Simulated assay, not measured.
Amino acid sequence: MSPLFKEIRGSPILWLLAAVPVVFLAAALFPEAHTALFVLSVLAIVPLAGLLSHATESVAAKTGDAAGGLLNATLGNLTELVIALAALQAGQYTLVKASIAGAIVTNTLFMLGASFLLGGLKYHIQEFNRASARLQAGLLFLATVALLMPSVLGGLDTASVAPVTQTLSLSLAVLLIIGYGLGLLFTLGTHREFFSSADHAEAGEAPWPIGLALGTLAGVTVLVALVSEIFVESVQEAAVAFGMTPAFVGFIVVALVGAAAEMASAFSGARKNRLDLSVGIALGSASQIALFVAPVLVLMSYVIGPSPMDLQFWPGAVMMMFLATVTAMFVTNSGRSAWFVGVLVLMVYIIFATTLYVLPPAVR
């Protein structure tokens, strides 16, 4: 365990791990102190994200950036999945859909754009595997097309649309899971040679032993999920105190905090010229949410939900997901990046965030 303790001693930001037991204690003693719980949960998630970042880099050093990015995206999305399942069981389908759409947009635009910017500020030009990025963007495009169809039907104001939308959503959920599985088979199996990382990474510290890295990944992921639940329970009340609209909270705040662990790994990879890892985490996480997490939630709603959930999103959410996907396809087409590319992507995200911030609370 010495590498883990050495990392904690040598990084002042990891000293914030002290906030983890504090937030659990505060949640038990003062469950109505929503603003304080909101701040404490954010302070607790930040150092946990740092630990998850280091552990992921150690795993990626053994498995390659493609598999490392997939592993980080999967573990990072467990947080969103746990939170969404809790909301699903409570019948809060609006919150579930907002978290799905917000996570897709945030990972595709903010995480990818910030990675390009942070890496570009240190390196004049960075390169990444164009084939891998284009495949992830293509999978994301497939998912947005599938999510668009129930929303189009939902706009028809007829009594017979609801059962049709539900049947279509169930069929699309199964289809998207199959597509995601075939994508994994293609990238990690039959054509894995096309998705190897561009070898431009700088030398860094020795990676942790694989056992320690995997154990840290598992333990920290559980803690992030538990702290995130406290965060979600407190964020709505805290948002009122800070003057944020429900739409802004669901799409921006919850998505940013929920993806903090993945972002730490993506940003660290970009600064170390391992842009394949960053792109793999950002687009891999977004496509996994759209192709796997969202369909699983539809299927699970038949088991744990008060009623079946469909894939019908409000038009603004569908438009933002579609434009985020098109933006990702555009900026990853060349396999090269510079700091200004990141600025352009972040500007698109800021436009969305500004729109949601000024949106009246009654509009969704």
Rank of each mutant, 00 (worst) to 15 (best):
R336V: 04
D276Y: 04
L75F: 10
L226E: 10
I230G: 02
L142C: 14
T35F: 09
H200V: 12
S228F: 03
A146G: 01
E237N: 12
Q89G: 15
R9H: 15
K6N: 15
D310M: 06
G250Q: 01
T332G: 06
G211E: 06
S2L: 13
N77Q: 11
V174H: 07
T63W: 15
V235A: 12
G280Y: 00
A114F: 09
M321Y: 04
M244N: 08
A203P: 01
T325Q: 01
P12S: 09
V345G: 00
L275Q: 10
V220W: 06
D276A: 01
N273C: 06
T74V: 15
A103P: 02
L168A: 07
N129W: 11
P21H: 02
A26T: 04
V222Y: 06
P246C: 06
G280E: 03
D157F: 04
S278P: 02
L78E: 08
L142M: 06
A328L: 08
V358E: 11
L356M: 14
L153N: 07
T56A: 10
A44C: 04
G155D: 07
A146I: 03
L184I: 13
V240M: 08
V220N: 06
G316R: 06
L70R: 13
S171H: 14
S265F: 00
L297M: 05
G335Q: 10
S301L: 01
S2N: 15
F352M: 11
